[in-house]
Nucleic acid binder design. Structure first.
Ligand SMILES: [Mn+2]
Ligand SMILES: [Mn+2]
Ligand SMILES: [Mn+2]
Ligand SMILES: [Mn+2]
Lengths: 221, 221
DNA sequence: TAAATTATTTTGACTAATCAAAATAGCGTG
DNA sequence: CACGCTATTTTGATTAGTCAAAATAATTTA
């Protein structure tokens, strides 16, 4: 059985390879895991020997199917645990990430299945992140963000892509949660600003960078 | 923060010093933790240096108050987690011990408090083991067992002192759960046998050793 | 009380995971 | 096409936790 260190490496490779074009660099990986690059190199060579990853020296690393299976299972645990903490224990959605980071390594498949049932088999976690299925299928969908969508269109927030407590608290305080409806009234690229209007007629500004972390879909109906 | 290894050492010292007369021997401790005695000695010397235990070389080890605080907190987590797994997730009471053994090291105080509230602040876990309070008070009560109580008296089971899956399954199948009522009809010490009668008029035999693991109180009312 | 048995401690070695700092490989720029 | 910058890899050390086996202390037995 992989140690929780190994599980963390594999999970972060999976997460980073969603954004990166498949090969994850040692630099990215090391900084995601808060270790020095040399440590990541050493570890990746060990993981390659054990068949979890393929290492292209000096290029980057990618998951094998064995590695992907482990990574998806850990990610599923992470996101179901977050959902449990928010939906059942009513915890602050900004703080559950850190909790799930530990619990994801301690929960058995048996417990997880029962949690899943208790929660009603949710498709996404409280941040809108998709929850991999028990069979390891990850519903990967491309959404526009508040930085890229059309202006003055009614939108619904579907996902917040950023785990830091600070950003999630900001989003919470401004009613920018998955499910909330709003529209982008204007954008000023040179200034790096976007102006949005939530349904309660409140208007506010935020940086384009921040706007890019909030994913939306056009409001149907 | 103590590692989960340290937490396990401290928790097991606490549990063993309930039965043993305060000083826990390296042999007992090592076998409880499934390590060789030399490992326990080495570890205990380190824990003594860090102020968690007092080590009387060649005699045994006991907890300092710092060590006892940690041990009680871990034990509280263990027992509340077991209660959650049985009461909320409806898991088999015989299997939850192994799950809790891992989760006890991954759960934060914040999550624990919310679990406690969700469960209605239980005083004991599914096996009847007392749950230490948030302030670290452990309700230590001395009960008679089926091996020591008076014969032909109506009794209520209050606790099963044995964590192994096999014993718990045996107890479950024979309706010997905390709360069940029964009486001991006879005892044959030379043969090492006790005969008990559960309220459903079922009569059965068990060894005195097994009977000693089932704690009871006289039935009032 | 001397010898034998048993428990504990010590010693030496190993694995997993990490860091600091030196070496190296790939760039891109001049 | 050489030089310099940057990312990566290598090297050498460290820490936590463990085991096997030898050494030692304590206790029991004769
Ligand atoms: Mn983690
Ligand atoms: Mn999430
Ligand atoms: Mn444990
Ligand atoms: Mn228990």
């Amino acid at each position: 059985m992989p140690s929780s260190t190994v599980e963390n490496y594999l999970k972060h490779i999976l997460l980073l390879s969603e954004s990166a074009q498949d090969l994850v660099s040692m630099g990215e990986l090391a900084s995601a895991l808060a270790v020095v690059p040399g440590t990541a190199t050493t570890m990746i060579k060990a993981l390659a020997r054990e068949g979890y990853v393929a290492h292209q020296p000096r290029q980057g690393v990618s998951l094998t199917s064995a590695g992907r299976t482990v990574a998806l299972s850990v990610l599923r645990k992470h996101r179901l645990v977050e959902t449990f903490l928010v939906n059942v224990l009513k915890m602050d959605w900004a703080s559950v990430h850190a909790e799930a980071e530990k619990l994801e390594h301690a929960i058995s498949d048996e417990v997880l299945d029962r949690l899943d049932a208790l929660l009603g088999y949710p498709a996404t976690d409280p941040h809108g992140d998709p929850i991999p299925s028990r069979k390891g299928k990850l519903n990967f969908q491309v959404y526009a963000s508040l930085a890229t969508c059309a202006l003055k269109q009614p939108l619904r927030i579907v996902r917040i892509t950023e785990q830091t407590t600070e950003f999630l608290q900001f989003a919470d305080q401004n009613h920018l949660l998955p499910g909330s409806t709003l529209s982008v009234t204007s954008r000023n690229l040179p200034a790096g600003l976007a102006t949005i209007k939530t349904t309660g007629t409140r208007t506010q500004a935020m940086s384009i960078t921040a706007a890019g972390k909030i994913l939306v879909e056009p409001l149907r109906r």
